[in-house]
Nucleic acid binder design. Sequence first.
DNA 1: GACCAGGCACATC
DNA 2: GATGTGCATGGT
Length: 220
Amino acid sequence: MPSTPEKVFDLLLQAYGPQDWWPGETPFEVMVGAVLVQNTNWKNVEQAITQLKDAGALNPSGILLLSPAELQQRIRPAGYFRIKEQRLRSLVQFFVEWYGGDIERMRATELRLLREQLLQVHGIGPETADSILLYAVEKPSLVVDAYTLRVFARHGWVPQGTSYHALQEHLAGELPAKTEIYNELHALLVKVGKEHCGKTPHCEGCPLEGMLPVGGLVAG
DNA sequence: GACCAGGCACATC
DNA sequence: GATGTGCATGGT
């Protein structure tokens, strides 16, 4: 009998189809996007990415050669530009110093080790680290974002306030550790989260409607 | 004009 | 370990 996360995955995939998510042109672009998207929407990030491209700076040395002021101006549309300038610089410095700016060397590194290293980088927390691991490095690392927690908590599948780590462990324990599945699942959860599991507890037409537990949605 | 969006570091208790 | 706060732009 399939677990709840497996059923969720199947239902969402059936309803929405493959999402082909995180359309970065290069792994490096995905890494940059992972920092810029922190607590912001993707539209704003696209503008920032475009401005980096226009400056020919969407590569490791390009970023590092920009002055702080110019880098800040380029990424300004993504918000928190002073903070993100430092975070971006820290990440790129790490990428260059430890891996020579070579994504293949990252791929050759063991997942747990690489994750620990990323978490040591200033400005890289669990979600950003997992996003980089999954979408840029293509490692089977589950991304647990605000939508993931919202969808699972609102349906009563996990308690409200479940921690990032606890939810990640729970989901990982119920799903095959495959990059393609983690990739697709996260994209599908964001989609259903945006469309049906938003601020108001309302689920009409939601692909997960039939999976409501006894007691229904958690209000608030 | 308020509210929200694909977090994180830091201070404080 | 849990909770609160600052960070900033662009869309609804």
